[in-house]
């Protein structure tokens, strides 16, 4: 059986996990829905080289951000697992 202390520790681990998820998914939504769709027209007033910014986010930038989000997630979770000693040996 798990001790009370262990249960509390696992609860904390899960809370930290949910916080990481909330932040990363928030960025995911911001980039895909707002920068690339709802505010794309406004962003198109700015340029990135030959790209209009809103168009660039929709066809390039969002994909790079998605990739970055997964990389950050993998690193954060691996270190969180170690910190709370729930990682696989």
């Amino acid at each position: 059986m798990k001790t009370l202390e262990e249960t509390e520790k696992l609860r904390q681990y899960w809370q930290r996990n949910l916080r990481i998820l909330a932040i990363l998914l928030g960025i995911w939504l911001l980039v895909s829905c707002f920068l690339s769709i709802f505010f794309a027209k406004e962003l198109n007033a700015y340029h990135l080289g030959g790209f209009k910014l809103g168009f660039w986010f929709a066809q390039q930038g969002s994909i790079y951000v998605f990739l970055l989000l997964i990389v950050i997630y993998v690193r954060q979770m691996n270190s969180l697992d170690k910190q709370f000693d729930v990682d696989e040996k």
Binding site: L24, A40, A58, Q59, S62, I63, L69
Partner: peptide, 24 residues
């Protein structure tokens, strides 16, 4: 043109959901 972006974002953004919410 721009309207085609739905496929680019739709078919890549799903991997964020997969990685964060399902796969592990």
């Amino acid at each position: 043109g721009y309207d085609g972006s739905v496929y680019l974002m739709g078919w890549t953004g799903g991997y964020v959901l997969l990685a964060l919410l399902l796969a592990p």
